[in-house]
Design a protein around this nucleic acid. Structure first.
Length: 289
DNA sequence: CTGCCGTTATAAAGCCATCC
DNA sequence: GGATGGCTTTATAACGGCAG
């Protein structure tokens, strides 16, 4: 009667999932899941089916973990802290699903629910475009050595990945480089290459011209298929669009404000402004003075 | 295949203390 | 007073085993 130590976590701690009563006579407290079937004696059809499938997959060794690796969520939370977003702000942005203590504990947990992972990812996508409000949180994160969001690429969920070094010029994401044709060709050959947006568009367009399926290219580069289709059509990603907006504002009023002030005016992170300024300088475009 | 049992691991939540 | 951490408790998913 002893449980076999699982090499990958598949147990523990999930809140009760109630998929709703289907059988009017069922008196269970919650319904629809394998556990509802076993523990709450739910005999609704979907609970029976969940139980049957669970048993069958268990026999065949095909049960999949109900939790996902917490690495990506942990890095996102630490990145948001590094920007100065307190745990409470992050929790609030998640829609009140959990409180700030859960935010903190996700950083020490090995696994979290897919739902929580998605919530953190969605919140991260919003907050990394805004400067944090808490200097104290930012200072603590810096002391703890938490990487900034810009130090992570698309591989933030990869447990084997490590953050890029933070260069003092504040230019880390490489979106400002001209097209690296060698990198594009390597990507077209099927190699996973960290491309800039412009290179990505060039690669998608060249690949399509050569008859390479868009889905394959998107998959190989680890990008969303629909995003790839949008970029193929020449439409910019939100990040690229934001960069262009910041550059335009820098050319217009960049001499009047420092990076932090302009960032606040444009509602973007101050590093976005710093990087945009660096891009303009490299291209030889002078900010009005 | 269905039904039940007991066990284990651990996420989630609650409470309080500490730090700055 | 805001932000965070430590400890404890609760809830429950997942597991093996057995019987019909």
């Amino acid at each position: 009667m002893t449980a076999i130590p699982a090499p990958i976590l598949v147990t523990g701690g999930r809140r009760r999932v109630d998929l709703g009563r289907l059988a009017p006579a069922c008196t269970a407290d919650w319904h629809g899941t394998c556990t509802a079937y076993r523990k709450a004696k739910c005999r609704c059809p979907h609970a029976r089916e969940a139980h049957r499938l669970y048993q069958k997959r268990a026999r065949e060794g095909r049960n999949v973990p109900a939790l996902t690796d917490a690495t990506g969520a942990r890095r996102r939370i630490q990145g948001m802290w590094a920007l100065g977003h307190p745990s409470q702000v992050i929790a609030d942005m998640c829609g009140g699903t959990f409180d700030r203590r859960q935010i903190q504990r996700m950083c020490i947990q090995q696994h979290i629910t897919p739902h929580h992972h998605d919530l953190i990812a969605a919140t991260y996508a919003v907050l990394i475009t805004r400067p944090g409000t808490s200097v104290r949180t930012r200072r603590r994160a810096a002391a703890a050595g938490y990487p900034l969001p810009v130090q992570w690429g698309a591989n933030i969920d990869d447990p084997q990945a490590s953050p890029d070094p933070l260069d003092v010029g504040g230019v880390q994401d490489g979106t400002d480089d001209p097209i690296d044709e060698v990198a594009v060709e390597r990507a077209l050959a099927g190699e996973r290459v960290d491309l800039t947006d412009i290179e990505l568009v060039a690669m998608l367009q060249a690949g399509t011209a050569r008859g390479i399926p868009l889905a394959r290219m998107a998959d190989q580069q680890g990008i969303n298929y629909f995003g790839a289709r949008k970029m193929l059509g020449g439409d910019l990603t939100p990040r690229r669009r934001q960069q262009q907006r910041v550059e335009a504002e820098l050319l217009r009023v960049g001499h009047l404000h420092n990076d932090a002030t302009l960032a606040a005016l444009l509602d973007v992170h101050h590093q976005t402004v710093t990087r945009a300024r660096a891009r303009l300088a490299r291209r030889g475009e002078r900010v009005a003075s």
